[in-house]
Design a protein around this nucleic acid. Sequence first.
DNA 1: GGTTGTGAACAAATTCACAGCG
DNA 2: CGCTGTGAATTTGTTCACAACC
Lengths: 218, 218
Amino acid sequence: MAPAIPGDIPEATVARLPVYLRALQDLADENLGTVSSERLAEMAGVNAAKVRKDLSHFGSYGTRGVGYDVEYLLFQIRRELGLTHDWPCVIVGMGNLGQALANYGGFRDRGFVVAALVDADRAKVGSTIAGVEVSHLDDLASLVRHHNISIGVIATPSPAAQGVADQMIAAGISSILNFAPVVLSVPEGISVRKVDLAVELQILTFYNERRAVVGSAD
Amino acid sequence: MAPAIPGDIPEATVARLPVYLRALQDLADENLGTVSSERLAEMAGVNAAKVRKDLSHFGSYGTRGVGYDVEYLLFQIRRELGLTHDWPCVIVGMGNLGQALANYGGFRDRGFVVAALVDADRAKVGSTIAGVEVSHLDDLASLVRHHNISIGVIATPSPAAQGVADQMIAAGISSILNFAPVVLSVPEGISVRKVDLAVELQILTFYNERRAVVGSAD
DNA sequence: GGTTGTGAACAAATTCACAGCG
DNA sequence: CGCTGTGAATTTGTTCACAACC
């Protein structure tokens, strides 16, 4: 949540860069050469001033009167995000979610390779998911070292999550994506992001309920 | 993203309520009667002033010198979030992720029932996942009416997502959780939240890269 | 004493509006 | 002219610090 190193780029901007990247990839696929902040904003679901302000943090990548060069901007944002090379990841917890993540094709095209799969249950160790053999949690450190992994994904049940995070950190992982509905405590310098599916739904119900009370539903 | 009805409660506060709820449920499970803002903050991964300010938007639920009554606060937050009853949901798209979501037990305990599963592929229609029969996308509207569904989860491939959203809205759904990596365009009054797994990882790589450049890795 | 509830100070993020440049 | 880049204005969110209260 807290940025490991403050840096001079606002957190809110960083969180939007991947969205711009996605939009730019679509534009590149359509062979569009340039794009205006307005069009890019529309594709990213934000407004044009925000796009320009966000991009201005990295320098002047656009041309007045013309717009932004798609390929050039694509390259710059990739560079800013550290996506000039693929990142090997390990997924810990081969339950429903872990398996789905392992099988999810969307990572490969966007810079991430599932290099290792791990579970604490020896019954699952040795099976193959999405072409990767499942290893035991005890081997985490050696897998991390061997594959040069710096990103860990936690898809375990809640009670196991903190322990797994501790082991990841001990093994040298510095970035964690946590799907378990618990708050992890980690030392300074470790980045954690969390995705709690029930939380997202609960936020939706808040607005749903409000609408029923305040507005005309239909 | 934009709140359907502005309301008088800050968006940032709303997004934290589910996290407090989770913490309070843990406290209730341990039979703790009261909790201080400090303790609650620690469990939620925020600071105490924020907890107090957040809760103050709903009135004075605490007792000075003592703290907050766990059960009472639990009830109030549930009420604010509209979690006094369960919410029937439909998941559209029975690929890896859709199936994992259908099987994920974490929803039931937190207020959500998977009432219907839908796919566009007739080969999948009729099979049963997590005890629910998969229906065809054509039957979405009747399922929504029949089960009184107001929350839709999109777990389809990107190109299908906007069409599915349109059909959901036409069927009367007003809250959408979107896992497809595209920006949905929806009319006013419809709430959308998105979860893009690759985006989360890409945000992590930004800080990872920075750390390597600026700080001492270990 | 201990802890809440909250105005006031501060910080972050967004939006405006327009000068500056191609 | 069109569109970027950016200071200034505004809005939103966070934190401080302490009076009010149990």
